[in-house]
Design a protein around this nucleic acid. Sequence first.
DNA 1: GATATAATTGAAAACAGTTTTCAATAACTG
DNA 2: CAGTTATTGAAAACTGTTTTCAATTATATC
Lengths: 151, 151
Amino acid sequence: MTQAHISSEEEIKERTSGWLSRLAEQGYRITGSRRAVVDVLAEAGTSLSPAEIYEQGRALHKQLGLVTVYRTLEKLEELGLVQRVHRPDGCHAYIPALHGHEHLLLCQQCGRMEYFRGDDLSELSRRLEGESGYTIKDHWLQFFGLCAQCQ
Amino acid sequence: MTQAHISSEEEIKERTSGWLSRLAEQGYRITGSRRAVVDVLAEAGTSLSPAEIYEQGRALHKQLGLVTVYRTLEKLEELGLVQRVHRPDGCHAYIPALHGHEHLLLCQQCGRMEYFRGDDLSELSRRLEGESGYTIKDHWLQFFGLCAQCQ
DNA sequence: GATATAATTGAAAACAGTTTTCAATAACTG
DNA sequence: CAGTTATTGAAAACTGTTTTCAATTATATC
Ligand SMILES: [Mn+2]
Ligand SMILES: [Mn+2]
Ligand SMILES: [Zn+2]
Ligand SMILES: [Zn+2]
């Protein structure tokens, strides 16, 4: 059964502190700059490019440098806490990582983003394997449209 | 019904001359450089980055410049003859454009690429619309795996 | 709380992919 | 074939990303 989902305040708080403790656990120091990057991205309702994170992050920690944004994203990605997505416009952006088998639904207007689970492509996948001779390992699936506010 | 598909020699020839006449039709001149870019990409069995097209294109037309590769891709894309895809590694690449409702199946090992049609996501799409309040306009779907040769 | 140590920082420089500028060249028209 | 004008490649400029490095700061230890 499909299930679309937006993060609540509650979940965002937990996500933020979860990411920070995960960083600390790995021996990384918790600095104002890292906190800013984590805060911005953990509560993002849209995917954010490094430049966008930098811009928003400076509101929280004015001396934040773009270089540190990149470095922090790298670490968060290594720990599986965030992931890179491709935007239709071609630029790279980051989102809180999908858990297990989830996909994205994106608003073409405002960039708002929802996660969903419950897609079942196994039959299609099996048919394709038969016809093509490929062994299928993975798939990318993303839906685009207009969110309730934007229609 | 699903249908996977690799291009035959025949289709490649037609594609090449089709692209060239389409360019001519639009008033663009047919030059050695453009011919090289068209030849390389029209017969590609994998997606190709501008740098890769440049490299292969110089075998056909030695004075080809990378700038012209970009410029020719731009025109082919405007005419809907080629399209940009995102590679897992993050770099941009080009493929002969999908026609109508087609998607890609890509080999993770060698980059080989097949087109297929016949996916039906309408039910999933409808369920998502109901749950999320979005109006869904479009989807991206791509399968990854190992081709027959690479397993 | 003060101190020592090593990780982290931001600025500047370097780098990679892409686009713009420009004078020379070559494709099409008549 | 000659004239016109689009097209070319080289170099310069730009944008997104990574590396270098000396100064700063988080943490562990006292
Ligand atoms: Mn799926
Ligand atoms: Mn489809
Ligand atoms: Zn929206
Ligand atoms: Zn393969």
